[in-house]
Design a protein around this nucleic acid. Structure first.
Lengths: 207, 207
DNA sequence: CAATTTATGACACAGACTGACAAATGACAA
DNA sequence: TTGTCATTTGTCAGTCTGTGTCATAAATTG
């Protein structure tokens, strides 16, 4: 990787870090792009060359995660029930952080904290999830030889799987220290187990 | 109802109609608030007194629907399994349109058409759904004597119920004429039935 | 009709984003 | 090292969304 690309990646992360810190300090709305750009010592115009919008900074993890889930899903055996495959793929995405830098995990935690504090941002994240959902549904349909255009089941399976993870993230115990990664993942795991217990065996295979 | 309120309501609907027509004609992004205001012969400033933002026009139905669902949910017997209560409440919301004006249904159909054409808008609608979800989860938890802060099950139940309706709306048969209200509701009903078949009996009552 | 409340329009302004062009910087070959 | 080329960046001008403010017009009330 050349100097150019390394520098770009460094700038991208610097922007995220500066932005998230400012968002947590003064609130998302109250923080201007100019402030973020100032903190990283770039022009506002350059900010928009790295991120298409202010909220894109917050949604960055989502985009990143979708890639991981897609990959992990492709690795699951084709004869596995789709809901199981999806939950496993989502688990892989979570465990991606166990081997990460402390900087990476810190970034992630701050991001979750931000979502927690700002429901509107959580909403925007879910909004992006709709597109992810559609892509995953098409993939699930393909794996099962179904038609994603007319068959609702693949969409339903994906929607339920993603909703499960979302609920796991979104309703943490209030007493719990928020900056605890393992506790958070345990909470998500709890939701996943709850989900697995809730469905009839074979429901996701279709009639 | 006084003249003032009647006039306001008329203006509100006029704005929605003008906006949706313009959105369908030239696209959501390409349509400016000034254009919408011009079509209704009000100032842009007044537009923002009726709707907090451009997208609020599109999300108007969502806000409207949440009220209906909440009411309908309150009417369900307390000993009914929560998932059943929710699905029934959502059904009530759908059937609200069967007794509506042709203008009302036309507006609704255009709105759905808009969502279909513009995935980003569908996303924004879902984003607002997150807040609705939380409110409903609190209500469900209350009905069951559970703690919405620590118990994930109520959130999961609501998330699944809403996801079901969303999938029913979002993946219509492509051949089907889009401007057919009954066909649309049938599709949603299909999803609801699919959902009801998918869960273990008593899953929503908790261990 | 007069007094009060409420809706509207006109204006000014901040902030998010975009297009265009010029300057700076890294990549690479001679 | 030096020169050429592609990429990145900053500056500037401009559009659009959204808000505060204040004066005017309209509806409501007594």
């Amino acid at each position: 990787m050349g100097l150019r690309e390394r520098k770009k990646e460094k700038t991208r992360l610097a922007i995220i870090d500066a932005a998230v810190d400012l968002f947590l300090e003064q609130g998302y709305e109250a923080t201007t792009v100019e402030q973020i750009a100032g903190a990283v010592e770039i022009s506002a115009r350059t900010f928009f060359r790295y991120f298409t919008s202010k909220e894109h900074v917050v949604l960055w993890f989502h985009d990143h995660s979708e890639g991981i889930v897609s990959e992990a899903l492709a690795c699951r055996p084709g004869d596995e029930p789709p809901f199981v495959s999806l939950l496993q793929a989502l688990r892989v995405m979570l465990h991606e952080f166990t081997g990460a830098t402390s900087e990476d995990t810190a970034r992630f935690l701050k991001m979750r904290q931000l979502m927690q504090a700002n429901p509107a941002l959580a909403g925007k994240s879910v909004a992006r999830g709709v597109e992810t959902e559609r892509r995953l549904a098409v993939e699930i349909a393909r794996r099962q030889g179904r038609d994603a255009e007319t068959d609702q089941l693949p969409h339903l399976v994906v929607a339920y799987a993603m909703a499960t993870v979302r609920v796991g993230f979104e309703c943490p115990r209030p007493q719990e220290i928020e900056n605890d990664l393992p506790a958070m993942f345990e909470r998500v795991e709890e939701a996943l187990v709850l989900a697995q217990r809730s469905f009839r065996p074979g429901w996701d295979l279709g009639g």
